[in-house]
Design a protein around this nucleic acid. Sequence first.
DNA 1: GATTCCCTTCGGTGGTGACCGAAGCGTCAG
DNA 2: CTGACGCTTCGGTCACCACCGAAGGGAATC
Lengths: 239, 239
Amino acid sequence: MIDPQAGGLAELAQALADRTRAAVLLALLDGRAWTPGELARLTGVAPSTMSGHLARLTEAGLVAHTAQGRHRYVRVAGSEVAELVETLSSRLDRPLPPVTSLRTANRRRALAVARTCYDHLAGRLGVAVTSALVRTGRVDHTAGRPPVLTGAGEEWFAALGADLDAMATARRPLLRECLDWTERLPHLAGTAAAYLRTVAAERGWVVPVTGTRALRVTPEGEAALREHLGIGPGELTLT
Amino acid sequence: MIDPQAGGLAELAQALADRTRAAVLLALLDGRAWTPGELARLTGVAPSTMSGHLARLTEAGLVAHTAQGRHRYVRVAGSEVAELVETLSSRLDRPLPPVTSLRTANRRRALAVARTCYDHLAGRLGVAVTSALVRTGRVDHTAGRPPVLTGAGEEWFAALGADLDAMATARRPLLRECLDWTERLPHLAGTAAAYLRTVAAERGWVVPVTGTRALRVTPEGEAALREHLGIGPGELTLT
DNA sequence: GATTCCCTTCGGTGGTGACCGAAGCGTCAG
DNA sequence: CTGACGCTTCGGTCACCACCGAAGGGAATC
């Protein structure tokens, strides 16, 4: 065994190498905090089994816990973990053509149009917002460098109601690149992108599709996207 | 088990979830084709065991074989696989501070400065070349879009001796983004980037460090990088 | 054609881990 | 204080798989 990195790589992969743990991580990708009991019911295993899985995921640094009374809440350990899972999933679109049913095809289609990725927007919508922000000069995203807000971008976010000073003090970067597994293109993550998702949800631009991470863009949302960012409805349809 | 994607994700992770298979993939990241026997000796397992591992990696679509006489050559199935492994490794720099020995520390340092990633340049060198190509207007890399060669870039590659027409007909894209696991920034992959590595190797700008994927930049290489791309020697030192 | 070499396939073994039910512990409600 | 609830720990079972040595098949060499 020559390469010392192999051990670490295998260890990380082992944490993901189980149907139940993978399902847990995918469920947590909606950014919400779940209780162990909910996750056990979702995946169809006994609470004791789920407890073991969660211990394993915690040890691997993939999920984090928050104790609250007699409940315990589980969340993804950080945005990097969410991005890691998304990246891994992006390899699955190749050997996935055997669509099992119309229902799963529709679900996948909905996910591809717009969805939540941890705490920001993803899918066709996420990529469209990203390129619109660059196109309108609000984000500077030159190669080899992380994306940054321009002066115009700061004004725009402030007009939306964002407290950029408070957001900038967080350990997490304001903007960050995240590879979109359906679009195969980067979209924006980070506190500013998370704020954008919050605004979109609060103003009713998007509404969650119950039971999945998918989002539906409302007519008000389409109008707002056109008005604020110049995104036409054609940009959100799948080819 | 609600999410049908969980099965695929777990399956892919399982293929990586073994020390020996992980070591194989890391070895193959140098872009060369190895024989099963070489890989068995490298990892210290019996040939029969290695055969099973390779069958497993093949089934997962991670490696490909080429029969040649009584030898069989194994390579990484494609550049996406190499990028996937690099991305996964990028999560390892967090829990890796316990450096086991001076030797591994030096090896890691060498890998961080310059190395091969499948068939292109990576590490500090790869990122420096990437940003220099953008800085000098040879590559256009705006946000949300794959990187593309500009007219000036095409001329530059042609002057280096590249046959861009032939390269463009390949199924693989000319340029492509690849996340660098030491720099945490994208560097360029794709046929054009692969050609650049070939040129650098042929002209003696970089020489491989035997036994690893690391590269050493020669004095001629430093001169060429400054002359062709305006990369100063300071850009290749680690902070 | 026989030999050599590389690799695979085939039994057999040992260790790891996913799973469950039962029991234990802390927290909140009555 | 008592009961209900949510979660974890423990013991035990079963399947899977990493590993090896031995045997077999195909390709090059003599």
